[in-house]
């Protein structure tokens, strides 16, 4: 009879699952990105919400409203429109400054991003509804990134 030890048996179990239910190829890189993003958010400075317009109901269940955030000298105005379960964010940054805006939807791992134009405007389209946060990354590397608090669309 076999004298397979517990260790040897557990090795067989491990090998069997590693062969037949292997870790998906993309998983480690995706988790590294998610963890790194969360870690960099830890010391992210938050903008402050200073104004929120009442919702304006449009035709066929579409709505839109505005949010205004400030952080230091930067003013961020957002117009959020929801239509058919997807949302669109039009933003305006004053003073205009080259930066990348990243939408961090709560549920979807995919991030949407836009670059601010010379006039300080940007648009993020086809976003999911739900919890959302914008991360603002100045292209001037000496300026730290900052973010809006989480808001619900």
């Amino acid at each position: 009879m076999s004298e397979l030890s517990r260790d040897a048996l557990l090795n067989i179990v491990r090998d069997a699952y590693e062969r037949h239910d292997p870790v998906p190829d993309h998983l480690v890189a995706a988790m590294q990105a998610a963890a790194a993003m969360a870690a960099s958010d830890l010391d992210l400075e938050l903008m402050e919400l200073v104004e929120r317009s009442t919702e304006l109901a449009g035709a066929r269940g579409s709505t839109s409203y505005t949010l205004r955030f400030v952080h230091g000298d930067t003013d961020l105005l957002l117009r959020i429109a929801v239509d058919n379960g997807r949302s669109r964010v039009d933003g305006w940054i004053v003073p205009a400054e080259p930066m990348t805006i990243r939408a961090l939807p709560g549920e979807e791992p995919v991030t949407h991003e836009a670059v601010v134009s010379d006039s300080g405007r940007f648009a993020l389209t086809d976003l999911p509804v739900g919890l959302m946060r914008l991360r603002l990354e100045p292209h001037d590397g000496s300026r730290p990134a900052f973010a809006t608090p989480t808001f619900e669309i």
């Binding site: 491990r14 870790v23 480690v28 988790m31």
Partner: peptide, 11 residues
């Protein structure tokens, strides 16, 4: 840390 533990978490 993520690279070494993600496969364990998967299983």
């Amino acid at each position: 840390l993520v690279a070494v533990m993600t496969p364990v978490l998967w299983h």
